[in-house]
Every structure is written in structure tokens, then in C-alpha cells.
Design a protein around this nucleic acid. Structure first.
Lengths: 235, 235
DNA sequence: CTAGGCATCAAGAACATATCAAGATTGGGC
DNA sequence: GCCCAATCTTGATATGTTCTTGATGCCTAG
């Protein structure tokens, strides 16, 4: 009556809750991985490639919401937040940070399982795209997993928008992305025609990653259309 | 601060709740469609193509859960169920029937909006879907997905008008397109008889894609009528 | 031979982009 | 809760690209 042996990563510090969920999820046919801290979760995600993450807020080593936001910059694994905090504010923050669902303790196991099925159902659809953790472009190196940019062997600091912009372009290297597409992906659906934003932040980005920003070699302007990142050299 | 004017279909029979949600959703920037019955919802979905459906259970003309199950056999539009029934049983049934989320009345508007953002975020997908859409003509290659033109293994830069012109001709290869048709498609309906524009830009285009622009092999002039692109080699 | 349609060129207008800088906003630390 | 630092937004201006427009000459059909 349940899904296959999908892997669920449970991020939770209270031993009692862990035992409880371990049994419930195990019985339902899932493979359960566990982490008691965000740091451990980070490792578990990379090693275990879970199909869904159950994230308890209020872990000892950091803010789960901030972690979620950070995580979402490079991964799409569904996150179901589980929290004792039931304030609307908390829910909105978590969901906007990138969580797929938010359950307030106490909750019923059957509801949890149903909600896990929902997110699995969604993610099973549009295939699994495995992409390398490191994207390389000439003297530019993007380590998506570690959220690190290296230009000519020197680490470079990018602001959140610059980072999103760069990863978007890099993931679509060789393809022209229109202003509209970029706005939608980096800013969210709202901003109608403010392509000026794109220009400003793209200029900043070029300053940081191009050797000669006045004559860009990595990010090419397609006047009247958008921008294109040069494809990396083929092997 | 919110998404674009995505369309939300509200399926709800109580006038008070409808008015309340209409205002809340409208303020948040959504276009709101309304239906008081499942039958009306069916029609509204077909006509309005909503981005998300808010479904109240317990409508006068049928079982919302059964409707959801039926709906899911042919459509993937996200459904957020809103119900006064808070029993775990109800939630599990609705979610397993295909609902994407389940909110129990009373609920906060901000939470609802956040959950709408979640499902919209998911369905908007990874923005750029890869469609291998390449048109080939001898030594000319048009990659529509990437917006890229290659002539004899060398990338060629086209201006927006040139690109539109080329794609239009390529998509209608073998057929003669009149000046009027070209003007309408590339420039828009306004320009009455300015076929001179076509000539100028077509000359530019030929310079870029023909090996000998004076004796065009790809784009043929049909005197007195218009232009025609040579059909690509068949496989 | 002539008229109409076509190709080509060049210059300025219209439009799009790059860059700088100041004000507004956000988020984190105290 | 307040303040500071970082970041984002917004506007102004300079620069660069593309489009339009008109002039000119060629070719072909009648």
C-alpha cells in the first residue's frame, strides 16, 4: 500500500521522536537515514541522496530555516518541516525559505505518511537529473554543492543574487536565456519588465568573474534577447 | 512582494468565505476565478486554465475527494484542499486522492498564500525545459532551443529581426512566404506595405548565412511574390 | 527602352545595454 | 529592540547596437 523503498532523511535531535519516526517510516517501507544536527544532515544528504527530508526546526547547531534557504540554492530535494512552533509566521517563513510542507507537532503518523507520498509523487515525475557538483568554465569553477566560486584559483565572494544568476546561466550554458526567464528564475515570478535589475547585477557579476569585464568572454550579451553563458570546452 | 498574476480557481459555496478569499487573493496579486459547485469548477478549469485550485470539500453537488481523484486522471493542476473537517482520515484521503495540500479551517491567510506559493513554485518547474529543436539546412543549423545559429561549424550572430526572419522562413521551408506574411509575422500587424524593410534585413541575413550572398542557395527570391527557403534534406 | 521590383550601402534615429552612485531594504549581532 | 554592514533597488548618464530610411544602381519583363 505504500511506495517503494525510498530513502527518507530524518533530521531530528530528540531521541524519542527519532525512535518513533524510525519505526513508523520503517514499517511503511521507507529506508530511514538519521541526522541529529544540520551539519550531520549536510553530510547525510550528500552521501545518502534521500528522496525526501524531514526537518525538525530548533536543532542545537543552527537555524533550520536559514539552512533550508541555503540548501535550496543548489538542491531540489523535497523538505517537510516538522516543528513544535505552530505560529503562522513560522510556517510562512519555512515555506518561503523553500520547504515543501510544514507539519506542527503533535501530528498523526498517517498524515505524515500521506504528505510524504505527496512530495514523492511530485518529485518522481520530471525525472532525476544528476548533474555534476562542479561546473567548470575555463578559469571559472562553480562548486554547487559547497556553494563556492573560484576564479583563477582564487575564491570569490558572490552575493545571493549574483550566485543565483551565475548558477542559472551556468546550468544553461550555451543557451540564450531571455530577460524574462532570468527575472522569473532569480527574482521570482513577480517582476514584470524590470530587466534593468538583471543588467545591474550582471555587471557586478562580470566584474567578479571576467578577466576583462568590458569585453566579456564567459557571459555573452545577446542584444534584444538576453544573455548566454559560453559552453565549457568539450572533452 | 508576491507572484505575478497567476490565476487561482476558488471552488467554494459559502459566499462569506468567497468574499474573504477573493479579497485576500486579489490583494496578493492573483487573478481569482470562482466556482460554487464541482460542475462549475469543471467548466472553469477548462476555460480559465488556473495555475492552482483551492477546493473546499462538502460542496452541494458531490464529493470533492472523488472529484479530485477523477480530475487527476487527466490533469496535474495543483489542488489545495480547504476543509472544516480536520480528521486525519479526511486529510489522508484527500492527499492520496491527488490533492497537493490540505488546510483545515480556520486557517491564516498568510499561511494559505505561502502554501499557494509552494505549489506554484513546484509547477513552474526548472524554468527552461530542454527541447531538442534543431532545424538543419545543408551547412546551416538553427538550434531554436538554444537560440543559436551555426554556419559551416562557425557560430553566427544574428540580430533579433534577422533571427525571427530566419526561423519564420525555416519553419515554412519549401513554401513561398509573401512580403505581407513576413511583415505581419516579424514586425507585427501594423506595417502596411513597407516591404523595403524585408529586403534590407533579408540582405543582411543572406550576408551572414549564404556562402555567396549574390547567388543565394538557401533563401530564394520569388519575384513579385516573396521569399522561399529551400527544403532541408530529408532523412 | 522603360518601368517596376530588387539588392546594396550608408547615415542618423531609435532602442538596448553598461556603468556609476545614492537611497532603501534586509539580515545579523549585540 | 536597535544598530551596523551588506545587499538590493532605482535613477541618471554614457556607450554601443540595431533598425529605419532614403539614395543609388542593377536586373528583368514587357
Amino acid at each position: 500500500m505504500t511506495d517503494v523503498g525510498a530513502t527518507v532523511l530524518m533530521v531530528e535531535d530528540e531521541p524519542q521522536v527519532r525512535r518513533f519516526l524510525r519505526v513508523a517510516l520503517g514499517t511503511a517501507g521507507y529506508i530511514v537515514h538519521e541526522a541529529a544536527t544540520l551539519a550531520a544532515a549536510q553530510v547525510a544528504v550528500r552521501d545518502g541522496a534521500p528522496a525526501v527530508i524531514l526537518l525538525d526546526l530548533g536543532l542545537p547547531d543552527g537555524d533550520g530555516i536559514a539552512w533550508t534557504r541555503q540548501f535550496r540554492t543548489h538542491a531540489a530535494t523535497p523538505i517537510i518541516v516538522i516543528s513544535a512552533r505552530g505560529r503562522e509566521e513560522d510556517k510562512v517563513n519555512a515555506l518561503d525559505a523553500g520547504a515543501n510542507d510544514y507539519l506542527t507537532k503533535p501530528f498523526g503518523v498517517r498524515e505524515l505518511l500521506a504528505r510524504i507520498r505527496v512530495v514523492l509523487r511530485q518529485s518522481s515525475g520530471p525525472s532525476v537529473d544528476v548533474e555534476p557538483d562542479v561546473l567548470r568554465f575555463d578559469r571559472l569553477e562553480i562548486d554547487v554543492a559547497k556553494h563556492r566560486i573560484v576564479v583563477a584559483d582564487a575564491e570569490v565572494h558572490l552575493t545571493p543574487i549574483e550566485y543565483k544568476l551565475l548558477v542559472l546561466l551556468a546550468r544553461n550554458a550555451g543557451r540564450v536565456l531571455t530577460h524574462r526567464q532570468i527575472l522569473k528564475d532569480v527574482w521570482g515570478n513577480a517582476h514584470g519588465t524590470e530587466s534593468h535589475h538583471v543588467r545591474v547585477h550582471l555587471a557586478e557579476l562580470r566584474k567578479k568573474i571576467e578577466s576583462n569585464p568590458a569585453q566579456p568572454r564567459l557571459i555573452i550579451t545577446e542584444p534584444g534577447v538576453g544573455y548566454r553563458m559560453k559552453e565549457p570546452l568539450k572533452l
